[in-house]
């Protein structure tokens, strides 16, 4: 049973990791808890769903288009709700993000209605059984895609020129702009990538859990952020790691403590990690500037 629970936690964790990746990207650059990320995740799931069911688009294409749509929405939100507040306190930006999140989820409710939609699965329901555990094809795909996205993202940030500019911007905006980096452009690109990842997470999780609703972004958005913090916010492998740690903690909490305290166990893990290593499991401790 233990192995099976470990697998359960791993898969659940990789769904959190998918969401956490986008969160961590945005936070890394502008240090804003992008509350609307959960709504972009929801939006991506809806775009994917509509493309697949109404326009009969092949799944892979729908997945990519949903990512593009998510990127577009992310850029729009950044432009309308965050950019004007770049020079103000970060709390103002946080409230603006909350406003954007409320707006988007209620817009979806107005357009799509409250009844959950079923996401038709593009994968067959093959289940692989061993004596120790059971795993399905879609679970393997979810796990693999979160690992792939993490690797791709890490390579992008570490190896490309834009990635380098991103890291410079994250470190010090003013100096970066003196070095000829167009900060606004970098932030836009970051939002585009982060939101595309959010939308990708929405489609994947939609496929995995089978339903799409306007309010689906709230709790997973929160958990995704918690995962990013556990792993070390701003750190891409950390998001993956944090997501999996969170997933496993939740599942083990439900399995060996009590399913009634499942979420409490997850949040307790968060607090313990923060207390022991405030910068997250994989985060580097920043030197305090005096």
């Amino acid at each position: 049973m233990f192995i099976q629970q470990l697998i359960n936690g791993l898969i659940l964790g990789s769904t959190y990791a998918l969401i956490a990746l986008g969160y961590t990207m945005v936070y890394g650059i502008i240090e804003l808890i992008n509350f609307a990320h959960g709504e972009i995740y929801m939006f991506g799931a809806f775009v994917g769903l509509i493309l697949v069911t109404v326009f009969k688009v092949p799944f892979i294409l729908a997945f990519l288009l949903a990512m593009a749509a998510g990127a577009l929405l992310g850029i729009t939100v950044e432009y309308l709700a965050y950019r004007p507040l770049r020079q103000s306190s970060r709390l103002a930006a946080l409230i603006s993000a909350i406003g954007a999140s409320i707006f988007l989820s209620n817009l979806a409710l107005l357009i799509m209605g409250a009844q959950p939609y079923t996401f038709p699965s593009p994968f067959d329901a093959t289940v692989y059984r061993t004596s120790l555990f059971v795993i399905s094809k879609v679970e393997i795909i979810v796990l693999a895609s979160s690992i792939l996205l993490m690797i791709a993202l890490t390579l992008f940030v570490q190896r490309t020129k834009v990635g380098k500019a991103m890291r410079a911007t994250a470190q010090d905006k003013d100096t970066a702009s003196l070095m000829g980096i167009n900060i606004n452009r970098i932030i836009t690109i970051t939002f585009a990538i982060g939101s595309a990842l959010g939308a990708a997470a929405g489609v994947m999780v939609g496929v995995y859990f089978r339903t799409v609703t306007p309010t689906m972004g709230l709790m997973p958005g929160l958990k995704g952020f918690v995962a990013a913090v556990i792993g070390g916010i701003g750190n891409i492998p950390g998001a993956m790691f944090g997501g999996i740690a969170l997933g496993i903690a939740e599942v083990m909490g439900a399995a060996y403590i009590s399913s009634q305290y499942r979420d409490a166990v997850a949040f307790a893990l968060l607090i313990i990690v923060l207390l022991l290593k405030p910068s997250g499991l994989l985060g580097r401790t920043a030197q305090e500037k005096v």
Binding site: Q87, A92, S96, G99, I102, F103, L104, N106
Partner: peptide
């Protein structure tokens, strides 16, 4: 209702990011 409520939050922050009675920014440091 909530659609407008969300928009109001965003707009209010745009118009007056330090809050209605908040102290303005000092030396450019929020």
């Amino acid at each position: 209702r909530l659609l407008i409520y969300g928009a109001v939050l965003v707009l209010m922050m745009r118009v007056r990011p330090q809050g209605l009675l908040g102290q303005p920014l000092r030396n450019g440091i929020p």
